[in-house]
């Protein structure tokens, strides 16, 4: 039984014909989309479910099931890529076929992407809110800020400052890549995109190195609340850098295939916005967590 069907004419007495909306206008206003049925969303929820299952198993399965937990996490992440790719493919195909009116769909995607960024800002906001509130209550309780016992006595901001410079530069190169595409110089666009990706990778390497040094010196999430918020904030940011890099890589791949043109490159635009967002978050992390460390 289908969930709906057109009502049977005999069972649908229309007392109010003067409200007839089915008048056959020959002009279509806002081209509105006719949704294509798709299995990708339901498939994605199914594969994604492996990830929480893996987390539960990781936390509670003990050493014997640790391998299986990692397996579930890996499998969930990898198999999720299939519906994600399929879904993106449908969106691209729909846009190319011009189903819903290019302008209207582009407008929807732009607004939707911006709203998604807003929710990202809200998540980072919750961690920053935690950070500032903790600063305040530690000052009230202990009469001092960092360093708590177990934190580094001083913070050498050299390395993270280099990281900041690299990320900011990568934002610029990303914009240059965009400009090149607008100029129609596709190979230069590709080159600048590659530079952006390499800079992002260098940033991640610096962060990884820094983490390694700290962990070796015994400063971990378990040291104190500063260790907690430091690792979670930088780790969550690093996760976003990684996500951004995957997006940029996909964009690079599509540049290679030749998908984008001066007029049509929404996903490149969205990926670069995302990259800028990640950079701005890092400015905040750098200023409040690193640079002001000795000043607190």
């Amino acid at each position: 039984m289908s969930l709906y069907s057109a009502p049977d004419a005999h069972h649908a007495p229309d007392a109010d014909v003067h409200h007839d909306i089915d008048a056959h206008h020959d002009v279509e206003y806002l081209p509105s989309l006719n949704p294509a049925p798709s299995y990708w969303p339901v498939l994605l929820t199914a594969t994604m479910t492996l990830i929480p299952a893996g987390i539960v198993l990781y936390l509670w399965g003990g050493d014997s099931l640790r391998l299986l937990a990692w397996g579930l996490l890996g499998l969930g992440s990898l198999t999720s890529l299939v519906p994600v790719m399929g879904w993106c493919h449908s969106v691209i195909v729909d846009k190319w076929a011009g189903h819903f009116g290019e302008a209207a769909q582009g407008r929807d995607l732009v607004l939707g992407t911006k709203l998604f960024f807003l929710s990202e800002i809200a998540i980072f906001g919750s961690i920053f809110a935690y950070f500032f509130a903790t600063l305040r209550h530690i000052h009230l309780d202990a009469g001092k800020f960092w360093p708590l016992d177990g934190s580094p006595a001083h913070w050498h901001v050299g390395l993270p400052a280099i990281g900041l410079g690299i990320l900011l530069t990568s934002s610029v190169t990303c914009e240059v890549a965009h400009k090149m595409l607008l100029k129609g110089n596709k190979s230069a666009c590709k080159d600048w995109m590659l530079v952006t990706i390499v800079l992002g990778l260098i940033f991640l390497a610096i962060q990884g190195y820094e983490w390694g040094v700290f962990v070796e010196r015994g400063f971990t999430v378990e040291s104190n609340v500063f260790g907690t918020v430091f690792y979670v904030l930088t780790g969550f940011h690093g996760f976003h850098v990684m996500t951004g890099l995957i997006m940029l890589l996909l964009v690079y791949g599509r540049l290679e295939i030749g998908h984008f043109s001066k007029r049509r490159h929404f996903s490149m635009q969205a990926a670069s916005w995302y990259w800028h967002l990640v950079d701005v978050v890092w400015v905040f992390v750098f200023v409040f967590v690193y640079a002001l460390y000795d000043a607190y």
């Binding site: 935690y130 903790t134 530690i138 708590l148 971990t220 999430v221 378990e222 040291s223 104190n224 609340v225 500063f226 260790g227 907690t228 918020v229 690792y231 979670v232």
Partner: peptide
Amino acid sequence: GTGFFKPALGG
């Protein structure tokens, strides 16, 4: 092992 809400770690 984080200490967000653990007073012993300053949370």
